[in-house]
Amino acid sequence: MLTHPTLDQLNTLGLHGMAKAFGELIDNDEARGLAHADWLAMLLDREDVHRQDKRLGARLRHARLRHLAVPEDIDYRAPRGLDRGLLTALIKGEWIKNAENLVITGPTGVGKSWLACALGHKACRDNHSVLYVRVPKLFDDLALAHGDGTIGRRFKSLAAVQLLILDDWGLEPLDAQARHDLLEILEDRYGRRSTIITSQLPVAAWHTVIGEATYADAILDRVVHNAHRLDLSGDSLRRLAPKPVA
């Protein structure tokens, strides 16, 4: 068999998964006894896996998740009021298909951002587009976009992503522009896309942070109406983590 020309042709055609598998199989004594159909099936399977991995890598790069978190690493033992049943259901991902929201609240250090990123990672694995942003930086970026005329394009990109993670919401009161921008983002996404919001503040305190009753009612209606809730409590996991040995 013309091994090297075959490998070159597979790579030229962009079938890199098949090319790698072909190189491994041709040097495998056990594989030489396989029927042609079995060879082809194995090569196609490897190409499919290779392409899935590439797509996942692209989705994760676009998501820009803050933490390298996956659902398999969630610590259910830490005393933070984590609803394991609800989280198990969230990991399955039906809520994203149904364009529902998730609100994660609790004091600093209990793992709100980490859990949001773990769910974001699972959404990427489920072939959903994901974007993570910290709310203070988002408002700064949107203010610049208003200035340079790119705000329409920015709103469009935020509306398109299937799961938007808004982290660290409520650190400071909103000004008029931020209120308007947040309502625009949530209005574009309501009933069409899913949003995760993490906050140190309980939902009952969000009215005060938004700062204007009409906007507050409209924003909360678009977030809380169809939102799952993870209300965490307890001490900071950072303080509970073991200190490195000197």
Rank of each mutant, 00 (worst) to 15 (best):
Q52I: 15
G17L: 07
L7C: 05
D8Q: 15
V135P: 04
H228Y: 02
G211L: 13
D45H: 15
L10C: 05
L34C: 07
V70P: 05
I74L: 13
I219E: 06
H207D: 12
K122W: 06
D235M: 09
F139M: 06
D181W: 09
H207K: 11
P71G: 03
L44N: 13
M18Y: 06
G93Y: 15
R61I: 03
G147E: 09
R64S: 15
P107E: 13
L220G: 05
Y132I: 15
D167K: 04
W169M: 07
L13G: 04
D140Y: 04
V245Y: 05
G81W: 04
N101C: 00
Q162R: 08
L138Y: 11
L230Q: 05
D181P: 11
W169L: 12
F139R: 03
T208F: 01
K112Q: 09
V161S: 03
A58S: 11
L56H: 01
I74R: 02
P79A: 06
H16G: 05
M1F: 10
P136V: 05
Q177T: 08
R59P: 00
E94W: 07
L174A: 07
R46C: 03
A89S: 12
D73W: 08
D48M: 12
V161W: 00
L163G: 01
D38K: 14
K92I: 00
D29A: 12
L40G: 09
D27W: 14
H207P: 00
Y76I: 02
I151A: 02
K92R: 13
C117M: 07
A143S: 11
P71Y: 00
D126A: 14
N226K: 07
M18W: 05
G17S: 01
V223N: 06
R192Q: 12
K20M: 01
G191K: 10
D75P: 05
S157Y: 11
M1I: 14
L163K: 02
N226E: 11
D83A: 04
N28K: 13
G191A: 06
L44D: 13
G23Y: 03
G57M: 12
M42Y: 02
H62I: 13
L56I: 11
R222H: 07
I219M: 09
N28F: 13
D29I: 10
L90M: 11
R32W: 11
N28M: 14
D126K: 14
L158G: 00
A35Q: 10
F139G: 01
D140P: 00
A145K: 03
A58Y: 00
I104W: 03
S199R: 14
R66M: 02
A205N: 11
A176L: 14
L174P: 04
A89W: 05
A89R: 09
P202W: 06
L43P: 07
H67S: 07
L7F: 10
H207S: 13
S199V: 12
Y215W: 11
I151G: 06
G191T: 12
G85D: 04
L164S: 01
S194G: 02
Q162D: 04
S199P: 14
G120L: 04
Q9M: 14
M18C: 10
V103G: 14
P202M: 08
D8P: 05
I91E: 15
R238L: 01
R66K: 15
R229Y: 10
L158C: 03
L13P: 07
L230V: 10
L10G: 08
R61Q: 05
